[in-house]
Design a binder for these strands. Structure first.
Lengths: 211, 211, 211, 211
DNA sequence: CTTTAAGCGAGACGGTACGTCATGTCTTCGA
DNA sequence: TCGAAGACATGACGTACCGTCTCGCTTAAAG
């Protein structure tokens, strides 16, 4: 989100519609041009806004695209389909569907790349994009525990570690298949993936890694 | 690799040392500057070569970086450590170690990002980087089958599909943890990951996905 | 002169000082380097200005140099020395003095050369440089007619034709001696030249060319 | 002319036809492209010759073009038409006709411009182009003296000075009218010019400039 | 109901990198 | 040894974006 002066008192307030227009224009430009050919001047023109306005709210291309892409993940929801396997399959398919959209492909990967040399950007991505999805892992597991599909956690540290592992595996596999392998994440693949993942996790609590 | 005319007879031949110097300079620049601040002019200067020489051999930044990074993966080897789990752990650690190097982080992710909009580039990456690693999956599995750790394959199509799945899961998880989560791929994580993966794959052949 | 949008309202106005700095830098570069080694990048640097600023105002090297050189001729004045011969000698010496300056030598000849293949450029030169001098011929002749040194003109067409002839002869001879022959236009040469010219023109009106 | 090693003995002798082909190609390129867009690589290609061959014989663009253009003036001849005025008119028209050709316009003026900063080049031009024409002035005057149209010269120094003056006036006026004014040198203009020139010169010997 | 301070569009500004082109030199091969 | 072919180091080209900076307007809250 664009940073706001804490106590904006005097003067004309910032246009509320401009933010939305800029983010939408950014996504449109990502679809048409991709990350590397997207220019802030062009985004400003598309949004019907002056470059100044854009720079007043975002520090640069990276920050802008993070915000533009983050909005895409707001629609992710954990389906309550009665079984853990079906829950996972559902959420993975949703995630893959978002990732398949060109504005997500171009934009998300690019900012992650940039973040390898920019800690503030990595933090922004984690806060805006990643953590919003991690809650799905936690929530899904607690539901499964309620249903007795997974044993209850006793060690919170191990639980957190396992959640991280699951998240890296789910997100990593989907991203890799979509972006690197260039193959579709279809129902068949998701079934196979979920099977392996769940079978692998089945005895996990019983054999906690030593730490 | 730079394309060569097959039967180059007349004229001065291309300098053999220039190629190596350019690729090394590219990696050095990736380490120092990262992808987005790497400029071809700077690479040329570092390599002690004219910009034109560089453009004569590579079409642009993307192609150059693919070649520069691909060389890093040549050192990957499948260790023969006696057990499937140890083999996997060994190769994952090697893979993670390469990926942790800044020139790989910056460079590989960036070209993968670019490849989302450039099929020729994706193909180049697949040929230069990905396929060279996939053989490790196939080789590792056949060794494990010889040792009786995995059942022999009967359906080659299912085998290929499973190999792809394994590859997406291994590479995806490592990449995601390294680049997105920003956490180290240490021995502890690798043990946990391998455990889940192997346990998940244990019954895979018995329950082939329907297709 | 750089073209200006007639009603420039919005946006930051063009820096007024930049124009002068660029033209001065251009003349300095002409003196040091000559036409063929003058680069617009160097001019921009000398003027403390970005290359883009320069290109925003002039279409290229030719147009820039025409403007830079044209300013040199603004100082030409017709001396009122009492006799036609002295007037001519005075103005020819002034003209030769300007032409002897290296920035005029290098610059003017070069753009005239370029103008052989570029009508717009020829027109620009005529407007900026040539026509400003032609007035001296007209003015000088009318003064001489008032003094009775030349007969009054009756046929305006013939008068114009004669003015053109005089101009080609004066400018041509001075330019040729300075630039082609590489000899100085000193007082001695000017006296000889003026003598021939005036004697030749003495009966001109009496023997108009047939047309 | 291209410099030749005085005693070319060993090895393959230089192709005799190459010289002519290169000069012709140079003139053709001047016609099509003009001086500033003429490139030596292009000339070499047109002549069916390697760039190396070209550089082995000429030092650069300037020297090559001087030689290419100089050949054009070889066809200049002093017509023997019986009267001084007609002789002058004839030779001026011939001169103007050569100068009107695009390869002469572009090429000659350009090298003269370059020569303002390169004494060796100026000397080459004088030797190759200018002096070949100056003989016409001398020859024309001596014929006119034989015919009694001009008084015989007594002072050789003054004679030389006058020849230079005439040459500057003739060549200068024609060049200026053709290249700067952009007007044609037609019969009418030549008649007017010759009239002025001859009338001006009529008493020249009687009033030598004081020196 | 007027200040008044900020937001806003437009666009010029000093920079940096781009990818191409021409220069003049060099290195190889074949004649 | 020359000539063709073409790679080479060099350096300018003209363009595109960058992120900043004036400008002359709104525009709404504070006085």
């Amino acid at each position: 989100m664009p940073s706001r002066s804490p106590a904006s008192r005097a003067g004309r307030p910032r246009s509320a519609t401009a933010d939305a227009a800029i983010l939408a224009a950014t996504r449109a430009a990502l679809v048409e041009l991709g990350w590397s050919k997207l220019t802030l001047g062009d985004v400003a023109t598309r949004a019907g806004v002056a470059k100044t306005t854009l720079y007043r709210r975002w520090a640069g291309k990276n920050e802008l695209v993070v915000d533009a892409v983050a909005e895409l993940f707001d629609e992710l929801e954990l389906p309550d389909s009665g079984s853990l396997a079906a829950d996972i399959e559902g959420v993975v398919l949703q995630f893959a569907a978002i990732l398949a959209r060109p504005e997500a492909k171009s934009g998300l990967m690019a900012v992650v790349t940039e973040a390898t040399r920019d800690d503030a950007l990595r933090e922004r991505i984690r806060a805006s994009v990643v953590d919003r999805q991690k809650r799905l892992v936690v929530e899904g597991r607690s539901r499964a525990q309620e249903r007795g599909e997974l044993p209850p956690e006793t060690d919170p540290a191990a639980a957190s570690r396992t959640a991280d592992l699951i998240f890296d595996m789910v997100a990593g596999a989907v991203v890799h298949r979509t972006l690197v392998s260039g193959e579709p994440v279809d129902e068949e693949w998701v079934r196979g993936f979920t099977l392996v993942l769940l079978r692998g996790l089945a005895g996990e609590a019983a054999h906690p890694s030593a730490g």
